[in-house]
Design a protein around this nucleic acid. Structure first.
Lengths: 234, 234
DNA sequence: TGCGGATTTCTTGTCGACAAATAAAATACA
DNA sequence: TGTATTTTATTTGTCGACAAGAAATCCGCA
């Protein structure tokens, strides 16, 4: 019996099954363990999670609501594709949300928020130091998510979370195929953003957020546009 | 047998049940037929819709994902409350999305989009002319939704749709309790926005969207802050 | 061999039923 | 009479099974 099955089957509480399936699937999708386009079979999942199809289905409905899976009527649901054609709309929205959440955090944060943000930044710095790409991607997401929480606008936060998750998939693609050295620059930029937020300097926070977003967008763009042709003779 | 039951039961196609329940509940929530806080009983709904609890449940999960209902574990799910305490975050996000979608529409629309937008505007004008508050609220939402579609950014669009829906509930509250004459000014502002979009004048579109958002925000604010004390002796 | 139609298989959508958890009611007791 | 505790009742969460729809397979025929 695998670890997942044990955790799932050993007298789980009523109502916890859906959350477990949801969290597990979500992580597997965002870490590209389940690549875009993978079919998700309900009975197979129900066997693996050792529970009925009903909670599996509910988790899939929730994931579909967040755009992480696509449900084809009367056919298998698949992991949502990454829409490389409309990446610019993603960049546009991501940049705007970086700016808005950082601005709002500078305006409305309280001391407790700062502690949480600094804790996430410490974990991010440790991941970069250890050159652990996966941990870096996840902690980077948590860092910015905590800033959004400090901004206290749930509408921006929910959109931003969705964008950060989608970005997690794209970044995962990037760092798995292209073993660049991890960007220490991001650690410094994060520190500067924290300082601006703590000082309640909205203008500086905005400027830093914009620059930070540009950094990430350019990284991804250079990856997408990179020349992958092999130098072979034909 | 009621109309709803007939529509639902008469050989409905496989997979259409969920959509029907979802659409029906959604409309009833947004039109305040189901006021915030109302409990939603699954078996009662399944009898009314003459189908099993399974599709009902799936519809409720989707509605919960959009924040229209709140699920209390092991207890009845209720229609989501309107958070008057944090209304300013709603206004902030709504204004920004008005601006972004209108700007993008001015930049990226094509002739077919304009036709759709103009059609919605015609319906909106007719509703205002007829002094039909409910129709005005619904067509106003559709008008701005079609502008968002023309802007072609699905991330902004989905957030904007959510905000417009929430606004539909708030406006419904407003026009039901306070029989003001309906604002003709909105019709003119819509026409100006269409003209700016058609001319691809991004700056003007932005300015008009901002002003339009301010109008609506001020209307709602004056409603929320209105003095409701009755002049009675005690 | 290639193609169209029938058949089979496989997966999902829906159903009715049971069990767990909570709320409401009833009872015991001070 | 009021409060704590047990009992009942109601509502949700989960399950296994069946049927519908689509894809895959098989078969007949040119």
């Amino acid at each position: 019996m695998t670890q997942a099955q044990e955790t799932a089957s050993n007298d789980r509480k009523r109502g916890s099954g859906v959350k477990y399936v949801y969290d597990t699937l979500r992580d597997e999708i965002l870490d590209l363990v389940l690549p875009p386009g993978s079919p998700i079979d309900e009975v197979q999942l129900s066997e693996r999670m050792s529970m009925s199809r009903t909670p599996i289905r509910e988790a899939l409905v929730r994931l579909a609501g967040e755009g992480l899976v696509t449900t084809l009527p009367n056919r298998s649901t698949i992991v949502a594709h990454i829409d490389f054609m409309n990446l610019y709309t993603f960049f546009d929205a991501l940049t705007l949300m970086y700016r808005m959440t950082t601005r709002l955090a500078a305006e409305y944060h309280d001391p407790a928020d700062l502690e949480i943000i600094r804790a996430h930044q410490a974990r991010f710095a440790a991941a970069v130091e250890a050159q652990d790409a996966l941990a870096m991607i996840a902690t980077n997401r948590d860092f910015h998510a905590s800033i959004a929480e400090a901004g206290r606008n749930p509408y921006y936060a929910s959109l931003f979370f969705r964008l950060l998750d989608e970005g997690r998939r794209i970044l995962r693609l990037y760092y798995s195929s292209y073993q660049d050295r991890l960007p220490y620059r991001f650690v410094e930029e994060h520190d500067q953003m924290i300082a601006a937020i703590a000082a309640r300097d909205i203008a500086t926070a905005d400027r830093l957020a914009t620059a930070h977003a540009d950094q990430i967008v350019h990284q991804i763009q250079s990856f997408v546009a990179r020349d992958r042709r092999m130098p072979i003779a034909i």
